[in-house]
């Protein structure tokens, strides 16, 4: 069995790991807003600095962080290329039909690429430092107001929790089925796109059937343990806000304030 726990949780005991998951989720959202508000390199640099600090305090190795970026390399390159070729700037270096490369275009595409990288790194920091359970607890707690408009927040959180719980099982199963079909000569790596899609059927059909069977059995097991939905249900683990969370909250607030202030007081140039 390949022993990888999902959610890429990286088990070390750090300041960031111990933070309230709700705070981390809110911070992530605030951070994303901040990088989208940022319009120049100073502001982006400030954001990057904050992120570096987080990585440092979370004690996540740089290699891990870079691995998260590697997953989106294609996306970053693709959007950069598009921006580079289609941005209509004043200082044009090269032009051909609808394509045009300009100084402003280069700056803009680099800026967007950085933004994207920061976004990915920050999001993966959340999953690196938060266990799936506390993540779902955090989501459920944050979404509580939605209960007032009759959205089944508890059910959503439970679905998320079960999904996270089942992911290692299903990943294991996928690799087992894949291996089994490869042992029967299945080839998933060559041929054109239609052939490749067709080649996945021997994996997808058994996987789907197994997922359905598991869902059925899990439903019975939950019924047998008196599950009736979110009403009257209590929670064993309560999330608690501590001084650590307060410090992190202040830091987060300072970041947003910083970006806003920079927008007001610094010259708006690249």
């Amino acid at each position: 069995m390949k022993d990888v726990s999902f959610g890429q949780f990286y088990p070390v005991n750090s300041f960031v790991h111990r933070l309230d998951p709700r705070l981390k989720i809110v911070f992530l959202i605030a951070y994303i807003v901040a990088i989208f508000l940022a319009t120049n390199f100073y502001e982006l640099a400030a954001c990057a600095l904050v992120l570096l600090l987080i990585v440092f305090f979370a004690r996540i190795p740089i290699g891990k962080v870079l691995r998260a970026v590697r997953g989106v390399t294609f996306l970053v390159l693709f959007t950069t290329a598009l921006n580079l070729l289609f941005y209509k700037g004043d200082t044009v270096y090269w032009e051909w039909g609808i394509f045009c490369v300009s100084f402003e275009g280069i700056i803009f595409s680099v800026f967007l690429a950085l933004r994207l990288v920061l976004l990915v790194v920050c999001s993966s920091m959340l999953t690196y430092t938060t266990t799936p359970v506390s993540l779902t607890d955090g989501v459920e707690s944050l979404l509580t107001p939605l209960k007032w408009i009759r959205i089944p927040v508890h059910a959503l959180a439970l679905v998320m929790s079960i999904a996270l719980r089942m992911i290692p099982v299903l990943m294991d199963e996928t690799s087992r089925i894949k291996n089994a079909q490869m042992a029967r000569g299945a080839d998933f790596e060559s041929g054109n796109i239609i052939k490749r899609v067709k080649a996945t059927i021997p994996i997808l059909v058994p996987l789907l059937l197994s997922a359905l069977r598991r869902a059925d059995e899990l439903g019975d097991a939950m019924d047998a343990r008196c599950y009736t939905g979110g009403d009257h249900r209590t929670k064993y683990k309560k999330l608690r806000f501590t001084w650590r969370d307060l410090v992190a909250f202040l830091l987060g607030a300072a970041l947003i304030a910083g970006v806003v202030l920079m927008r007001i007081y610094l010259p708006a140039s690249y």
Partner: peptide, 21 residues
């Protein structure tokens, strides 16, 4: 593999007890 709801042992054991409030 098809009976546990939670990722962590104690969270799963708690499930039934939480259900009955």
């Amino acid at each position: 593999d098809n009976q546990t709801v939670a990722t962590i042992v104690e969270d799963d054991v708690a499930f039934g007890a939480e259900n009955v409030g």
